[in-house]
Design a binder for these strands. Sequence first.
DNA 1: CGCGCCATCCCCCAAAAGGGGGATTTTTTA
DNA 2: TAAAAAATCCCCCTTTTGGGGGATGGCGCG
Lengths: 212, 212
Amino acid sequence: MNPALPESIRILLADDHTLFSDGLTLQLTQADPAVTVVGQVFRGIDVLPAVQEHTPHVVLLDINLPAPNGIECVRQLSVAFPAVRTVMLTMYAYQHFIDECQEAGAAAYLLKHIRVPAMLDTIRRVLTGERVFPATPATDLYADDDFVIRFKLTPTEIKIISLIRQGCSTKQIGEKLFVSFETVKSHRKNIYRKLNIAHLHELLNFARENGI
Amino acid sequence: MNPALPESIRILLADDHTLFSDGLTLQLTQADPAVTVVGQVFRGIDVLPAVQEHTPHVVLLDINLPAPNGIECVRQLSVAFPAVRTVMLTMYAYQHFIDECQEAGAAAYLLKHIRVPAMLDTIRRVLTGERVFPATPATDLYADDDFVIRFKLTPTEIKIISLIRQGCSTKQIGEKLFVSFETVKSHRKNIYRKLNIAHLHELLNFARENGI
DNA sequence: CGCGCCATCCCCCAAAAGGGGGATTTTTTA
DNA sequence: TAAAAAATCCCCCTTTTGGGGGATGGCGCG
């Protein structure tokens, strides 16, 4: 069950931030001559074809990936290419996402706060069959992070974002969740404050970018 | 008013994602020998002291920066070091943020979807005193004949859809296009009728699906 | 020349969203 | 068990949307 480490590690990057993707490619290839970045893709829809074409050992996959998002991608990957290890690479330390990725078949979950040596260590570990997920919620680690605090959405809030994304009005959401109009309004206000946004379209963008 | 380009461009990076920051440092120094990354900071509170110590020409500043966030940082920077150019570097394409950064005194606003050559171009431009913010394109954005025919949308209507998708309100669109609020309202009504929809989220879905 | 299309602007209205205060209760957790 | 977080609900208010009527020019085209 524990495959030997390949002499050359073939990596596919899936991240729509070209600045990040280019920078990571440079870092990985400079840090370890055994590593080859065999491809970069910027949309979810390009992941499976690129894996087919470039036969990577590992896919470094951003959750925040357009059309479809990274979590959907890892689901598809673990069905279509069960031998390929998928390492989620994201800025979001939500337990919600970590659990979902684990269920979807990802091999590891890394935050963008790490550095390349630790990443290479994780990559080598998943290649031996290990699965590497954060043991403790990262909330302690990033308690001073403005955005992590603001983005700490509760389950109810995420549910409401999901309903808004489906086109429900505040009134309709209240009816669906058997709570009053005012309650949903309060949740909306809290969501907007946490995300530091002010308009519906921003919320819809956020939801789409984060796969809610 | 236009200072000459310095022989060596001193850059300070402020981004809490070490993977990104390290990668960008590598890319910038390899792309242009005139560029020196004089420092990296990972928290908002470290920005001003680092500018004091390293005397950069340009600060590349993430909005999503802990304690305090990047927008607060650029406010402080433009008071304490008005000669230092601040280039916001973020994943968020919200008009809300763009406006706030512009008011706070940032010299440019870049998305993480760009690549290093374009970034270097922007850095050189802000060093000559220019301010570089995302312009509202919308002019040559559409021109998709098929889609114009299928839905019989006029150029003005497509331009308005594009602006709505960017988060502009009816009022803001009127100001941008130099027409009255009522005119934009009429166009919106016509768009909704032609697309047979009734809500903003449907329009945004339509715009995304059709690449407006 | 008239017809249709487009763009412009105005009135009316109701519904929804957005933002500021609160408050209470339950649940979680330190 | 006490504090913190989450969920519930209410008041106030303004702005924005969405939809119904219009009207007035301009412009191309048959």
